[in-house]
Nucleic acid binder design. Sequence first.
RNA 1: UGGGGCGUCGUCAAGUGGUAAGACACAAGACUUUGACUCUUGCAUUCGCAGGUUCGAAUCCUGCCGCCCCAGCCA
Length: 572
Amino acid sequence: MKKRQSALPVQESQDETKAECRDFIRAIIAEDLESGKHERIVTRFPPEPNGFLHIGHAKSICLNFGIAEENNSVCHLRFDDTNPGKESTEYVEAIKKDVRWLGYDWGDHLYYASDYFERLYDYAVRLITMGKAYVCHLSADEIRAQRGTLTEPGQESPYRNRSAAENLDLFTRMKNGELAEGSCVLRAKIDMSSPNILMRDPVLYRILITSHHRTGDKWSIYPMYDFTHCLSDMIEGITHSLCTLEFENNRPLYDWVLDTLETPCHPRQIEFARLNINYTVMSKRKLLQLVNKGAVSGWDDPRMLTISGLRRRGYTPRSIRSFCNIIGIGRRDSWIDMGVLENAVRDDLNEHAVRVMGVIKPLKVVITNYPEEASEEINALNHPKKPEMGSRKVPFCRELFIEADDFMEDPPKKFFRLGPGREVRLRYAYFITCREVIKNDRGEIVELRCTYDPQTAGGSAPDGRKVKGTIHWVSARHALRAEVRLYDRLFTAEYPDRDKERDFKEFLNPASLQILDNCMLEPSLAAAQPDDRYQFERQGYFCMDPVDSKTGKPVFNRTVTLRDTWAKLTGK
RNA sequence: UGGGGCGUCGUCAAGUGGUAAGACACAAGACUUUGACUCUUGCAUUCGCAGGUUCGAAUCCUGCCGCCCCAGCCA
């Protein structure tokens, strides 16, 4: 028999999103601290500014900045900007904004690999002098052809054994822009027969006659990742260089550069599994394709799992940190269900979001026994479990809107909402009974005629009678018109990029965005500010779109629905 | 097929020789003026498979199977 322990009744702060459970990386760090190997831990988050950050980066950010926080230390933000053709300051600024928004602070530890170009060049010269690097005139195709295969060793370049002096001269001319792009590269002299293909004389520098977003036209050669990253880590005194699993093959090269150069310190590279979430794609390259193709409105489209998309969708930084904490750090290829991310926001918003009433698909209701010109102010709680969050007044009058889905002419069993002759409660207001269904020429329901019971003010009956259903409503006369955008997953396939035959874009979900133009919200929402988040009771969490909202006509994005047992039951 | 990794519930994930934590999902029930929230209960005799060592193995050994990464002048 299996015994499950129930959750411990530990009271934790709502802001507690730090990892309580120690992953293998934190275990290594704790060990290095205890053994005295390091007195202080320094980590870094090193994005290339060639796109916007996504939820996968958030995992790395939470790891690196989280470890720094836990150890009273610092995490550097370093831009790995060594490929000028793809990078821009626009991306740099977007990345800084996103890291800050997530709640992390790099203090004055903002760095750029491009700041190290001069020193990197000096290290390259040193390698050449040591006879550990050479200028190679083979074309890209020739280098590929001579690199060998997974099972066959590579061929040594004919340029491999020229003198250091000659190499130095050539490398200087590369630097001075005297040589054409593609005419030659600087290569490490390691081992063309290494079983690790990355060690077969990897390219260290290439000529790129491209202007760099920070160094302009100063350089005509740019260092490659494998040469730059380890040295940048070393220069900054990084103790633990955390990266994703696909860089595992690069680690011997990382170590080779630092060992060969006999650098004063040698950061330890540790790899962890990158984040995968189903029904979406994660790589910047693919996200960029969606942006360029116009499949989404931009990097911040609320359907994108970019940090900026999630922000616009209504996710809170706290919910993203909590998500990163929940999924953990490991070395296995894993796929996280989209539902885990959604749960993280739900939990957070359930705790903090103000409740309001909003009708997304309006159906008019006329309370026939309510005086024509009358109206009243009904008290409504901002949060049912948190009286300290206060209450507000919601106007009520003869004509209202209710959710079209809350009425069925021929309701099935267990349908607790409105139907002909049925009585339900209007939240915080009165019991109403449906007396008549009005249809148009096409037979569509356009209006309901109901009566209310004045005795049930506030929503309870003095005679003690119960109603099964409580529905939300908005006064027609006072309603604030709004556009509401409902989002569904961006892809129809669980693993859109797993299919080798078909392009991932073929799996785009044509119904991922639904725009409802004629939504009716309670008037208190007129005070909503861009990015404000609410729970529309019985519907979900919504946030005011900061881009497309206009005065008098706000746009609300649905962050996530509420859990809906009824929909699940009816198979919707 | 060379090298490097990884295989514990549907999905994540603890566990590192002493007899399978936790979370999500799922199921049943309670509560409910949100079919929400909350609460209660259930949910791996078994750790990719097969052998072996041991009083005792998810943990050690051997063999096999499966999945991921590497042949950019990307990062």
